[in-house]
Design a protein around this nucleic acid. Structure first.
Lengths: 159, 159
DNA sequence: GATCTGACTTGCGTATGCTGAAGTCAGCGC
DNA sequence: GCGCTGACTTCAGCATACGCAAGTCAGATC
């Protein structure tokens, strides 16, 4: 099985999942909104306050994210209040958790303040801290350098 | 052990590792350069061609990334050529692999084309595909919802 | 010493993102 | 039917990011 890194110019990066993912979640504010959504935030003004971006920017981002199906705009009603809308994570949005977790792990290690991390995600059952790690489908943990890059069905080769 | 999501307004998001990570690797082109660097690309014109951004943007990004210590600018010399510089990943940069992998996994699933993924990372020893997954320090795999968010030493509480 | 090439830099025009301040709008409580 | 409030929208104005085209520069080759 040929490793694609050995002849990087024989194939192109059009049809790259990383690039398409970045087109959807590539901006700082989108990621911070996802951080908050994964922490349970659902209402417009909470997002504005907790993420620290202005209302116009927030309205634009949320609209984009609903269009991208990361969030769903759902009507709700508290007793004695009128109907409002909240932004709930879709499955597509919730599955960004490994990305946000990997980013938080990296930030804790490489962009830390001297006070240490502000929050830690722990396993509910055992209390141990959670990290994003690389694992293969056979269950092996992957060390740096144990990786091959092989062609998928969507690879675009150059002649 | 209190879950911080239960009273989200009792603490702030200043000192957030996700935000600091995004300040460093938050732009689309930075991520795509990291993708290429992790695939082995090291030279300026290869980055330009493979990432698909213009030379001015690439020069600016690479300079930033060297300043951020994701890459190191190293002189090298091919026989019969003059001395040039290449951009090598630092440890700090290499450790972004879980982030890029998580992003690629997500893109493969949620932003796929009908042709399927272009490349697949596999475990060198067993050939099985690699994914970024969540795991706790005790080795348990984390399912959605098995997570607590607890205070770290750097948490900033609101009075 | 003229030429070539890889690695940039400079200049310009466009597009996107964000902020702050102010305005709108839909209901519900009164 | 008036006011209040949460959830936005509208309107400048500024800052970055990017693309394209052209220019520069250092050092090996000839």
């Amino acid at each position: 099985m040929e490793d694609l890194r050995d002849d990087r110019d024989s194939w192109t990066s059009e049809n790259c999942s990383v690039a398409r993912a970045m087109d959807i979640v590539g901006s700082r504010s989108t990621v911070l909104i996802m951080r908050e959504a994964l922490l349970g935030t659902r209402r417009f003004d909470d997002f504005v306050r907790r993420v620290g971006v202005g209302e116009p920017a927030m309205a634009a981002r949320l609209k984009e994210m609903v269009a991208a199906e990361l969030l769903e705009r759902i009507p709700y009603r508290e007793p004695g209040q009128r109907t409002r809308h909240e932004y709930q994570l879709t499955r597509k949005g919730r599955e960004l958790l490994p990305v946000i977790t990997a980013l938080r792990n990296w930030g804790d290690t490489w962009a830390a303040t001297d006070t240490g991390p502000s929050v830690v995600a722990t396993h509910h059952d055992c209390g141990e801290p959670i990290r994003a790690v690389l694992r293969c489908a056979a269950g092996h943990e992957i060390a740096d350098g144990d990786i091959d890059i092989i062609a998928g069905p969507g690879l675009v080769r150059r002649d």
